[in-house]
């Protein structure tokens, strides 16, 4: 609903929607279950990841199988800084992780954005598996297949642990989440954001009206990797352990799934998708040992029957029922 600012008739709806969701998000720790704090911290992290991912998939039309690697890179940067260098101040650690990821994203992206569709997907897959193999092999730095266990970094001298004080961590995640959403929303609605959408719809035309297509794709790639890096950096202290699996393309499949589940044509889609995916996945794995089957079937069903995702489908329904206007 946030996405519809600009249509005065819908201002009220948008305002109400934003307020309700903010209040709901703030209230989660009041449920009093440290498990839910943990779960929703994770959900917000996935949301941020999907939001960033959607800059490529939804707004630029590029499907990447390599975003697990950037997520993993963020997580490993934090883990290595904290354990190998004993560098613990929270914000700088996160900052360095994001910068490192964005830098690598810039290098990889520069090579990848020349290609489209399946070739782009395959190239990102190749790079991500290359890093996977490296992380697996560089035992001294990465702990190989066992990964690295990390103690959480400090925030303003406040020692927090993901297990003992999950509510703290939840609010930290929420703060990052809100900032990311705000920045993301500004970018999407900026001329640059529109230019990306033009590239997605019609790269030829975009070029013809003077948009430097390849350079903008590259920027979009960097932005989305920075988001992945942030999500990964927040993920590491939450779990207290990172493993090379994060770099695997199957892990990147999760963000793809989350984005699609929410609906990638709409700004709100991946945000909702990230939350729903996380909660659903954790729930399904908890109740059945057939969870790969259920998740796979869910993915198939979404692809075939709800290609617009949750938010997209809801929008269409709303539009038909009560005549709310506007798309994007």
């Amino acid at each position: 609903m946030k996405a519809k600012i600009g249509w005065t008739t819908n201002r009220l709806h948008s305002f109400a929607g934003i307020t309700i969701s903010l209040v709901a998000l703030f209230c989660i720790p009041l449920l009093g279950s440290s498990y839910y704090d943990f779960l929703f911290s994770l959900a917000l992290i996935y949301s941020m990841w999907a939001l960033g991912y959607n800059f490529l998939l939804g707004y630029t039309g590029l499907l990447s199988f390599g975003h697990g690697a950037f997520f993993g890179l963020g997580a490993y940067t934090v883990a290595i800084l904290v354990t190998k260098f004993s560098f613990k101040p929270f914000l700088p650690v996160i900052g360095i992780a994001v910068l490192a990821t964005a830098f690598l994203g810039a290098v990889i992206g520069y090579l990848c954005v020349r290609y489209t569709e399946v070739y782009f997907a395959l190239l990102t897959l190749a790079f991500s598996m290359f890093f996977y193999a490296l992380v697996f092999k560089l035992y001294y730095w990465t702990g190989g297949s066992d990964g690295i266990g990390i103690r959480p970094p400090d925030l303003f001298g406040l020692r927090f642990s993901a297990i003992e004080y999950p509510a703290h961590y939840y609010y930290i995640t929420l703060a990052f989440f809100l900032i990311s959403v705000y920045i993301g929303w500004r970018i999407v609605n900026s001329p640059f954001g529109k230019a990306l959408q033009a590239i997605r719809d019609n790269p030829l035309k975009a070029e013809a009206i003077g948009i430097p297509v390849r350079r903008y794709k590259w920027y979009a790639f960097i932005i989305s990797t920075a988001y992945s890096g942030l999500a990964g950096a927040l993920y590491a202290p939450l779990f207290g352990h990172v493993v090379p699996d994060l770099f695997h393309f199957l892990f990147a499949g999760e963000v793809l799934f989350a984005t699609l589940l929410g609906g990638y044509t709409i700004f709100l889609g991946p945000i909702v998708g990230g939350i729903v995916f996380t909660v659903a996945k954790r729930y399904i794995t908890a109740v059945t040992i057939y969870w790969p089957l259920v998740l796979g079937a869910l993915l198939v069903a979404v692809t075939l029957f709800f290609p617009q995702g949750i938010v997209g489908t809801t929008y269409s329904l709303l539009r038909r029922k009560i005549g709310i206007k506007g798309g994007e």
């Binding site: 998939l57 499907l63 569709e117 399946v118 997907a121 499949g253 793809l256 799934f257 699609l260 990638y264 057939y290 790969p292 089957l293 998740l295 796979g296 079937a297 869910l298 993915l299 198939v300 979404v302 692809t303 075939l304 290609p307």
Partner: peptide
Amino acid sequence: GFIKWIYEKDYTYQLLLTFGLSLVLSDA
């Protein structure tokens, strides 16, 4: 049963569908 329906669709859906199918098949 499945893939037939998405030949005309965007490649994103094709990758996602086969990805989902791979999860289902290997778990089956």
